[in-house]
Design a protein around this nucleic acid. Sequence first.
DNA 1: CGGGATCCGTTACGATACTG
DNA 2: CAGTATCGTAACGGATCCCG
Lengths: 216, 216
Amino acid sequence: MSNRSYGQFCALAQALDQIGDRWTLLILRDLFPGPARFRDLQESLPGLATNLLTQRLRSLEENGILVQDTLPPPAGVRVYRLTPRGLELRPALEAIAAWGMSLMTRADYHRPGNVRGIACGLRIPLRARIHEDDSLRITLRVAEQDIACVLEDGELEVVLGEAPGAKARVSCDYPQLYRFIGGADSLGAAIDRGDASLEGERAAVDTLDQIRGRPA
Amino acid sequence: MSNRSYGQFCALAQALDQIGDRWTLLILRDLFPGPARFRDLQESLPGLATNLLTQRLRSLEENGILVQDTLPPPAGVRVYRLTPRGLELRPALEAIAAWGMSLMTRADYHRPGNVRGIACGLRIPLRARIHEDDSLRITLRVAEQDIACVLEDGELEVVLGEAPGAKARVSCDYPQLYRFIGGADSLGAAIDRGDASLEGERAAVDTLDQIRGRPA
DNA sequence: CGGGATCCGTTACGATACTG
DNA sequence: CAGTATCGTAACGGATCCCG
């Protein structure tokens, strides 16, 4: 597949020549919440062989969709990062995911996920419901990892790591977070029940719940 | 690949389990401008083996994305048609195609295309520019085939066949139509130069050019 | 003739082991 | 940690054949 082109003069076909291979869109998904090391991608994508990951990353780099980068000291690790061209894929990824959302049945909420995938999934129902004047800054913690949700000037950002300046952090497990994303439960109710724990002020949690609770 | 699942509990991954295989999105693309026979799809998709097309169609049918149908007499031929669930994929396909649009360089405008792909490509720049009160009804003819463009109540429909009630039909070749889609040329100018021919009234052509000429 | 099914060589994928 | 090398398996692509 790697170098197999559809050979059609069509915007869809040419896009798929670059991003249509198996695993490619999932690799890109995992880069939207922030740059990732080779190892991070490998762990997010069980079943993807290392040689294939290498090949996909090379191919995406050649097409200007991502770049290799070295984080500034003291981290100093090599990471992969989306280029502006790669970031332009976000509407496409989210449109596919929005279509796929209805395939996610609650029976599967117990299945393990990966944090990067969740961060992407979190963005979709929120993005569809934000108002121009909403403002939010909160950290969600799942599987020992932080997800920063920052909403400012009508722009929603969901990236790995702590949200700078956040006054609240909510910790829960994967199924609980899935229920929130799917709209089946609010984080406030989960905290009240003890299914999630809150550090900091409650206000941000209520804001988040209120946004999720709006009609789409 | 056929039955290979990513096994992830993620909207994007689950969507790709159904529509991420090679050729699948191109098959769907060719069904948006209207139902198609097995043969039509084969001709639109050079390089796709017949057994693979069969397999993809079965799989899409199982997933409720398309159905087999028999056209009413006198046609009486078996066709494949998108279900409502399949039609919901349009925003996703168009988002990918919109990203891929910038990969289409003018140097390739001479490459042959297929009518169904073009009809899809035509919709994207127009869809992004229509106003609520626009109205249009025109037939475009390329490679001996008609494409109906109907714009009513803010809804744009681009399907194969003559536009019912259209008072104009423009005929041109593929490169000319590509130039129009890409915004490099207007149909009115092409008619004036003799690169396209008009049957019927000119007004609809001017409306179409005016819409395409708006800033996105 | 349209709509496939079967066969078979080639390519890509997936798992594991190994190296700078 | 970030890949490279190897190899068995599954998917693809082209051709041919079958059946209504």
